[in-house]
């Protein structure tokens, strides 16, 4: 618990100072973006309104004070409370990330299962598929998916819509590379497990290969991947920056990217805080899952 608070605090602090260190005047963001020709008066007014004329440490303390009372500050560019901005964008990104996470898992399991069934050739093929999947850039994969499923086949919309069909292509774009990575990590353990004594003895007991896989091997395979769920979520947020741009999908990733570009400090810090919180929660859930799957962990 205390650890989580520390993580949140440190994340907010680092982001706050890092964004402020970046070249570019936040006051310009407030009055219409970079390249503004506004006069000194307007700049001074903006600085005063947002407390940017105070010493940096005082701004920081004020920001922390605001955090304690649940106030993430006011966006420079959007002139709206950050909580509101994030509140608007979060659901879309969460839906995207969670769908992608589930899809990624499903695909990875399928790959590992498929490869575990066959001989060496199918394992090599499986590896090739996984590595290829893991090495597909989101922006390219997304563009190809749009080309095939939206432009050519016309099955799905190319621009993301709030309903389910609009979620499929963006989620797939995130899920496929993730599946490749998860598959690789799982396979390592799956191979070990398949070759182990307990697998042999299970086979000797007359367990079918499928049963062996789902009941025994999977447990081993899932462990390292489960511990990665929190991290996977983080990469999904990174991927969301690209996928949301590509599919014109409103969300936290795009907000974050635009905010960094616009030096919108409150929005960047606020977004990082929310992602950090999500990470903490998901890691916790991953640990729980790990404990469920691995009897050894329960003792600890």
């Amino acid at each position: 618990m205390l650890g989580a608070v520390f993580v949140l605090w440190a994340a907010a602090t680092i982001t706050f100072f890092a964004v402020r260190a970046v070249p570019g005047d936040p006051a310009e963001t407030i009055i219409g973006g970079p390249g503004s020709q506004a006069g000194e008066e307007a700049l001074a007014a903006a600085r005063a309104e947002y407390g940017l004329d105070l010493p940096l440490w005082e701004q920081y303390l004020r920001y922390l004070g605001g955090l304690l009372s649940g106030d993430l500050g006011t966006s420079y560019a959007l002139r709206a409370p950050v909580t509101e901005v994030i509140g608007e964008q979060l659901p879309g990104t969460l839906a995207l990330a969670l769908t992608a996470l589930l899809l990624g898992w499903a695909l990875a399991l399928l790959l590992v299962r498929q490869a575990a069934r066959g001989g060496r050739v199918s394992r090599v093929l499986g590896t090739i598929m996984e590595v290829t999947a893991a090495a597909l850039p989101h922006f390219w994969l997304g563009a190809v998916l749009i080309l095939v499923f939206a432009t050519t086949l016309g099955w799905l919309p190319s621009v993301s819509t709030p309903d389910l069909p609009g979620l499929i292509l963006p989620a797939l774009t995130l899920a496929i590379p993730l599946a490749g990575f998860l598959g690789q990590v799982m396979r390592e353990s799956a191979d070990d497990a398949l070759a182990s004594t307990f697998a042999l003895s299970a086979r000797a007991r007359g367990e079918s290969p499928a049963g062996l896989f789902w009941r025994h091997v999977l447990r081993h395979a899932v462990l390292p991947a489960a511990s990665l769920s929190g991290w996977a979520f983080g990469t999904l947020i990174s991927g969301a920056v690209i996928v949301e741009t590509l599919f014109a999908r409103p969300g936290l990733g795009r907000t974050l990217f635009l905010a960094v570009q616009g030096r919108d400090v409150p929005v960047v810090t606020g977004t990082v805080l929310v992602v950090a919180l999500a990470y903490v929660l998901i890691t916790f859930a991953g640990d729980l899952l790990e404990m469920l799957v691995d009897p050894r962990r329960r003792r600890v």
Partner: peptide, 19 residues
């Protein structure tokens, strides 16, 4: 009035009649 920053997506949406 929609915002579609990526040029290829924008064109694809036009070609498929979404916009």
């Amino acid at each position: 009035w929609r915002f579609i920053p990526e040029a290829a997506t924008r064109y694809s949406a036009l070609a498929s009649g979404e916009v």
